[in-house]
């Protein structure tokens, strides 16, 4: 009996861990690219965006998992989108209520969390098939994985592109910013760089394994 519970416990942590690394939504699954590229120009924005996404993911996974037996297959996508859109709207107002400036700098991308493939794909691939507990763990793992990836991008772009980290100057005044990093192109390049690093690590692991 006890071994059985151990077994399920191990599985639950797996659901959580996989999103962080092995199935990282950005670096491995390459999902939800739009916000990853668009609002990762500063670490702060990236963090806020990541938190917002993680929140929506968590809430929608929860609700989808709860309602999974209530929703017929034919309308599941439409229903999921409804649920997700609801939480996005809620998040949108919440952020407005927290800070107008933050809302301004994230722009339309808060609303666009609705169409983040990551959330829909987790709802469809996981939450609609799994129990509440597992879905929550999955959402937490994936959400944090997404947050982590966004943060990786945001940090690099802000440090190189602006010479700051969370708005704090890291270098002396004479530092020359690489403005390209906060431009759209920089987003593409930075993501490519991180993907390259991930692939290289993966390759090395496979080679040693």
């Amino acid at each position: 009996m006890s071994s059985g519970t151990n077994h399920t416990e191990a599985k639950s942590t797996d659901e959580f861990i996989k999103g962080l690394w092995k199935e990282n939504p950005v670096f491995v699954q390459v999902l939800g690219m739009c916000p990853v590229l668009a609002v990762s120009n500063t670490a702060e924005n990236a963090l806020a965006m990541g938190l917002a996404t993680a929140f929506v993911l968590l809430m929608s996974n929860t609700l989808v998992s709860l309602l999974r037996n209530f929703i017929p297959k034919e309308v599941r996508i439409a229903s999921f989108i409804l649920i997700i859109a609801t939480f996005v709207t809620i998040t949108d107002y919440a952020i407005q209520a927290i800070s107008v400036d933050l809302h301004k700098s994230l722009g339309a991308f808060i609303s666009l969390i609705v169409v983040n493939c990551l959330i829909l794909s987790r709802a469809e691939a996981f939450a609609s098939k799994n129990t509440l507990g597992k879905s929550i763990l999955d959402a937490l793992g994936m959400g944090l994985g997404f947050l982590f990836a966004l943060f990786c991008l945001g940090a690099v772009r802000e440090i190189l592109g602006n010479g700051t980290f969370f708005g704090l100057a890291l270098f002396p005044d004479t530092f020359q910013e690489w403005i390209v990093m906060i431009l759209p192109a920089g987003g593409f390049f930075t993501l490519a760089l991180w993907l390259l690093i991930f692939n290289l690590i993966k390759q090395r692991k496979e080679a040693t394994a």
Binding site: V30, A185, G186, F188, L191, A192, L195, L196, N199
Partner: peptide, 18 residues
């Protein structure tokens, strides 16, 4: 090989964006 696919597409997209 490591660059094939997404990474290369991102780089091209970056250059196109410029």
């Amino acid at each position: 090989k490591v660059i094939r696919g997404t990474i290369l597409t991102l780089v091209i997209a970056g250059i196109m964006s410029l």
